[in-house]
């Protein structure tokens, strides 16, 4: 695998299609690799890897803080803030921390230098190792009540930016909104996970449009595959999207996965299945 094209994002428009199943098992079978759980609102990759030697770091954002004795009430900051995170009434500035997007514009514009930036903790990231370091496992956690996981995802992906050589599997949040865009932004390749249902096909359409917008090379893996009617497969056919693999709707795989076991370690049959998938992915890169 070429070192400069090794970041593989695994995403899907719908939750529960198998992003974590696929990214965990691909990372586990890849030998030396990196797994990054960007689903910072409900991370669960760590439940499979049970990483050791966990190192933790907090994630902060910068929030404006006013020195009211310097503020002259010009309201340049209030008018500037596109997110309406600032207000000024009765000669008193108001900051709405959860509305603030930490752009720093108010600080730059304040003619009286009455605004400084204060750190606000919004979550944390963790780094640990699996199987004596075969897989370096990163994960992030957004604190309850925080509006956006993007700063956590940024820090997760920044941490890993230096590594470069190993294949990296980015387990994305579900959907196709900002947090997913942030997760795939620097990916070299996108795996779109779907399932053979109308919901699966509909949400595949959304992430398909997203990866096209980002001009990312991509292909689909259909999980929970059966011989029944398959709207997701039909969607791929109609849009000429390559299907990298089909993971069968399989009791053993389902059971292992719901017990938070890594399937490729438990079953030779499943090991072969994911080895084949991994081979196909590497051929694409």
């Amino acid at each position: 695998m070429a070192g400069n094209r090794s970041k593989i994002a695994v995403l899907s428009g719908k939750g529960g299609t198998g992003k974590t199943l696929i990214s965990v098992n691909l990372a586990a079978i890849a030998g030396k690799s990196v797994y990054i759980d960007c689903d910072v609102e409900e991370p669960n990759g760590h439940l499979f890897f049970k990483p050791e030697k966990v190192y933790e770091e907090i994630v902060t954002v910068k929030i404006p803080s006013f020195d009211e004795s310097l503020c002259n009430g010009c309201r340049i900051c209030v008018d500037f803030c596109k997110f309406n995170a600032l207000a000024f009434v009765k000669n008193k500035p108001f900051v709405f921390k959860e509305v603030c997007h930490s752009c720093g514009g108010c600080v730059l514009l304040c003619p009286k230098r009455a605004i400084s930036e204060a750190e606000k903790t919004i979550g944390k990231i963790q780094k640990g190792i699996y199987r004596n370091g075969d897989v370096t496992v990163y994960g992030g956690m957004l604190n309850t009540g925080e509006a956006s996981g993007i700063p956590v995802i940024k820090k997760l992906l920044d941490k890993n930016a230096a590594d470069g050589k190993l294949p990296v599997f980015i387990d994305c949040p579900p959907g196709s909104a900002c947090i997913v865009m942030e997760s795939i932004k620097d990916a070299d390749y996108c795996i779109l996970v779907t399932e053979p249902t109308i919901f699966g096909a509909h949400n595949l359409d959304m992430v398909y449009n997203l990866v096209k917008l980002f001009k990312k090379p991509h292909a689909v893996i259909i999980n929970k595959y059966s011989d029944d009617e398959n709207p997701a497969e039909a969607f791929c056919r109609e849009n000429n999207i390559a299907v990298l693999g089909r993971i069968p709707f399989d009791t053993e795989l389902g059971t292992l996965n719901s017990d938070a076991k890594i399937a490729v370690n438990e079953s030779e049959r499943l090991r072969k299945l994911f080895a084949m998938l991994y081979k196909k992915v590497t051929e694409e890169l």
Binding site: V78, F83, N84, F88, V99
Partner: peptide, 18 residues
Amino acid sequence: GAASGQGGAGIKAAQSIA
């Protein structure tokens, strides 16, 4: 002016009311 804004509409509206 905040009716179709991205967010914080209530804050901006309250500011206008005041």
